[in-house]
Nucleic acid binder design. Sequence first.
DNA 1: TCCTCCATCCCATCAACATGTGATTGCCGG
DNA 2: CCGGCAATCACATGTTGATGGGATGGAGGA
Lengths: 212, 212
Amino acid sequence: MKTISLAIIEDNDIIQESLSTFLGGDPQFDLQLTAVSVEEFLSAVGGNPMLSPAVVLLDIQLPGMSGIEGIPHIKKLLPEVSIIMLTTFIESEKIFAALCAGACSYLAKSVSLLNIRDAIITVSQGGSYMSPGIARKVVEYFTPKTNKIDSPLTARQLEIVQCIVDGLSYKMVALRLNISLDTVRTHIKNIYQILEINSKGELIRKSLNREV
Amino acid sequence: MKTISLAIIEDNDIIQESLSTFLGGDPQFDLQLTAVSVEEFLSAVGGNPMLSPAVVLLDIQLPGMSGIEGIPHIKKLLPEVSIIMLTTFIESEKIFAALCAGACSYLAKSVSLLNIRDAIITVSQGGSYMSPGIARKVVEYFTPKTNKIDSPLTARQLEIVQCIVDGLSYKMVALRLNISLDTVRTHIKNIYQILEINSKGELIRKSLNREV
DNA sequence: TCCTCCATCCCATCAACATGTGATTGCCGG
DNA sequence: CCGGCAATCACATGTTGATGGGATGGAGGA
């Protein structure tokens, strides 16, 4: 088993010490550095090419730049790094912000050190570890607000919507579906009424958000 | 610990037997029924109001309706059910299709029975369990292809894009940002040039796909 | 300082879209 | 067999969007 190079960014002394003692003492890890802020981490790593952790444990609440804001900067410096977020809060907003920024795992701080160790190993193997509550929130993100099976739109109308979302103009929709331009217009008109919208933009948004 | 009511939909005899023996023998589970197809499951549950599993283990490959197609139907019959997908394949496409349809957990069949048991317990507690490889694919879905930090667009242009994505018309964008309609037009013009696109539709799609 | 980039604004034109009113056909259920 | 609904098509009018010009002031780098 190759050792996994690590870094910890955490401003809370107690937690940092607890993590570094536990992880630093484990022979399968190589704890390269700890920092109390993203800024400190960046300048340390930027000033020393020998420092190149494979995995970074990153707190969300940090003095200065927040963990989430820091992700792009860390990724810019270390494109291949895997980032595990640590947080006390389970808020959808932060979870998605972190994932969107490029984090690859998200753990509540309440999990045990053993779980954190597992997460590091999983992540370094190209996997991803998420605590159950967080995973559930992620899954809910995908779940459609409206089920295709009882969409307010008819099958034909859904076809029209799909064409629009595909970026086609009315004229092209008419061509693709072999109907007249006016028919397309009528369909769109009805769809707008049903969905209570009045522009292509809103239609595309609703469709992409699976609200149809 | 309350017992967790279960159903298994799996057409492979060996796997089904292995699952039902293991799970059925566990006192914390109440294996209510097994089926070899979604159709069979639906008619069994539809015809007997006493059958109302809290968790369904659902294979993806099934005779007749596929597991993914079946999800909306199952959800319609049992809105509160938690669905755990079982599959031999780890394909992004299927994973997302299943999650979008309303599955709340996704496991490779290669995982151990113990893992499946854990997953059931996790799910019934409102969590979600995903094997590491699958979780990673889900996470990758969120990861932006382009980093905000080096977006080709200026901050102001990103604001404009956000407004458009929010479904606003040029006029409304102008109002919201307190600039003239013509300025909005100019910005959009520049954005289109930079992104090499030429319609609102493409802009919204790119933005939602985080390609900006 | 000069030059470039950005944000702001104006004008003009044509294609595309939003919306209303109205009509025909075919299917399904009462 | 009739009424309702989905799907089809038509015409008309005004609005919005895409794209081409060109112009100005300010912030910041060479």
